[in-house]
Design a protein around this nucleic acid. Structure first.
Lengths: 233, 233
DNA sequence: GTACGTATTTTAATATGATATATTATGTTA
DNA sequence: TAACATAATATATCATATTAAAATACGTAC
């Protein structure tokens, strides 16, 4: 019932339960069956059940205390920047509204990351961005996967910012892009136009111009955001 | 050995181990004692040990597999946006460099959140911001805690953005501010100046002007960032 | 001597029974 | 009625046995 690389029963149960929770299968407040019932329902031992519960509570989805049982926490305490949580949410209720909110975060973060990258990117880091751009060129000719190339480019910029928080967001961004692609990728613009804009980003970073780097990334993301907003009406 | 609200042995061990890991007690790559050894070292049962290990692996700090044992993952996979992880990091090695990186994230996020708030904040949400500002005024007169009032204001703006990701960051921001305050709060500017600038933010949001709201928040954060950068030299 | 398959070994993963603890609900007594 | 003791119920903890997985060592074939 899960596609991610499940290693063992505990992880399997964690994914199944996590998905069920974000899907709203268990009511917020006082939901979830008791430990013992979960064992029966999912046919696993108490050890695995407890470990799965602990993993989910570490991600802010649930809390568990004696006598009160296991309850689903309000959505506001879910760790949205946890890759698993994000994956569960996007793959179960990938609303355009949420996609818009996600893109708003990108609009806030990525331009700033590019600006930082323009100031501090090492030669090696520039090369990584350059290679990602080459992949995008290849993708335009059908020689590479367009989505993966695009993701590689944006995560390379994040990594080049040399900021641990932005670096941590690479997984966050790529996960969300991978899941939500089907909502935006449909309409492809002029072939090569996208590559051109990404090349512009690379150039501004290489020329150590933070202001222009910021603007270049903003241009791309604002466009994506507008596309989403236009569909929301 | 921990101050957070520890509920039970599993949480206690999670905090102790999490702190030890970010402090570098266990070498990255192949660190940590085996499950059995951890039981002896911390004098707890295997259940609690395993549950703590699962919680930490849910936060991206460690991985555990048969035969290879429990190993510390590279810092790049740590979930920096997890409140616990951030707390451990900031309370153990609160370097100015990290504080700078954190502030860079704030500079990216909070102005955008204010802009969104100016577009979508409800009347109730505006009231919350207003009350936080009142607390800041009180704090200037010694009638309230300045830090808590400041945190209340910034988190209120985040909440008013009506974006689930920004909302999730309220805990992240307040945790970091609370922990890192001792590195910046020392130098207080002109009394009332801070309040004035925050009042400006509220006004721009109330007048539904996203551009000016963004600028107003940027002004405050850029200032904080410059202060940190000046100390880094 | 190298490559491949197999056995061994080590460690986590799973299962289960028993006990402790915390919380809520209940009932009893003054 | 209020305070206090008691019971009921869920998770938390402990202990132990068994299973499965992964790395290493070993041996054999070529």
């Amino acid at each position: 019932m899960s596609n991610p690389p499940i290693q063992n029963l505990t992880h399997q149960l964690t994914y199944d339960l996590g998905l069920a929770i974000v899907q709203g299968v268990y009511p917020v407040g006082t939901g979830l069956p008791s430990e013992a019932d979960l064992c029966i329902e999912y046919n696993v031992s108490r050890s695995s059940t407890r470990e799965a519960v602990k993993m989910l509570s570490a991600k802010g989805l649930i809390s568990s205390r004696p006598k009160q049982g296991i309850r689903v926490l309000p959505e506001s305490s879910w760790n949205m920047f946890d890759t698993d949580v994000l994956k569960w949410i996007l793959s179960s209720k990938p609303s355009l509204a949420l996609l818009k909110e996600f893109t708003e975060v990108r609009v806030a973060l990525e331009p700033k990351a590019a600006a930082l990258a323009s100031l501090s990117a090492s030669y090696q880091q520039l090369e990584v961005i350059e290679k990602a751009l080459a992949r995008m060129v290849d993708a335009d000719r059908g020689l590479d996967d367009p989505l993966e190339a695009d993701i590689a480019f944006h995560t390379a910029v994040l990594a080049a910012s040399n900021n641990r928080f932005f670096l941590q967001l690479t997984e966050f961004i790529s996960t969300a892009l991978r899941v939500s692609i089907r909502y935006t990728n449909k309409i492809k613009g002029v072939p090569g136009a996208d590559v051109q804009k990404h090349a512009e980003i690379l150039n501004t970073i290489k020329s150590r111009n933070p202001e222009r780097a910021k603007k270049a990334v903003e241009a791309i993301l604002d466009e994506a955001l507008e596309l989403i907003e236009s569909r929301l009406e």
